[in-house]
Simulated scan of single mutants.
Amino acid sequence: MSLTLEQMRQDLAKILLEDPADIHDDDNLIDLGLDSMRAMTLASRWQTAGATLDFSEMAAKPTLGAWWAMISG
């Protein structure tokens, strides 16, 4: 898998129009403006990069740290 935590942070920052340094592993991404359509877009992009993600799990735990744990664990 070529996806890294920092690449995920970059992708999130781009889609949320935020600085990557402002997105922390434990931030609630919904509070930062992430909606279901954008989350599905990211999930699709990351699945293409080799990540195994379940959208319902992503929605239940909307933090970068939780998503990375799903992918890397």
Results as ranks from 00 to 15, higher is better:
residue 45 R to D: 14
residue 9 R to Q: 12
residue 71 I to R: 15
residue 3 L to R: 02
residue 47 Q to R: 04
residue 9 R to W: 06
residue 33 G to N: 05
residue 28 N to F: 14
residue 8 M to E: 15
residue 48 T to H: 01
residue 46 W to F: 10
residue 52 T to M: 07
residue 55 F to P: 00
residue 53 L to N: 13
residue 45 R to L: 09
residue 2 S to H: 04
residue 13 A to E: 05
residue 28 N to K: 02
residue 16 L to P: 00
residue 6 E to Y: 10
residue 7 Q to H: 12
residue 71 I to H: 15
residue 50 G to F: 07
residue 58 M to C: 10
residue 61 K to N: 12
residue 28 N to D: 14
residue 67 W to H: 11
residue 38 R to S: 03
residue 23 I to A: 03
residue 54 D to M: 06
residue 64 L to N: 01
residue 44 S to L: 00
residue 61 K to L: 09
residue 68 W to H: 11
residue 35 D to L: 05
residue 72 S to A: 15
residue 48 T to K: 04
residue 25 D to M: 07
residue 27 D to K: 05
residue 50 G to Y: 07
residue 14 K to R: 14
residue 46 W to G: 08
residue 61 K to C: 10
residue 50 G to V: 00
residue 5 L to K: 15
residue 43 A to W: 02
residue 45 R to G: 08
residue 32 L to T: 07
residue 34 L to M: 04
residue 31 D to A: 11
residue 53 L to D: 09
residue 35 D to A: 07
residue 48 T to L: 05
residue 57 E to Q: 10
residue 43 A to C: 12
residue 72 S to Y: 12
residue 69 A to Q: 13
residue 22 D to G: 06
residue 73 G to I: 12
residue 60 A to I: 06
residue 3 L to Y: 03
residue 2 S to D: 03
residue 51 A to N: 03
residue 32 L to S: 11
residue 7 Q to E: 06
residue 11 D to R: 15
residue 69 A to M: 08
residue 72 S to V: 13
residue 66 A to T: 08
residue 11 D to G: 14
residue 73 G to Y: 11
residue 44 S to Q: 02
residue 15 I to A: 13
residue 47 Q to A: 01
residue 11 D to V: 14
residue 46 W to P: 10
residue 71 I to Y: 15
residue 50 G to A: 07
residue 26 D to Q: 03
residue 13 A to V: 00
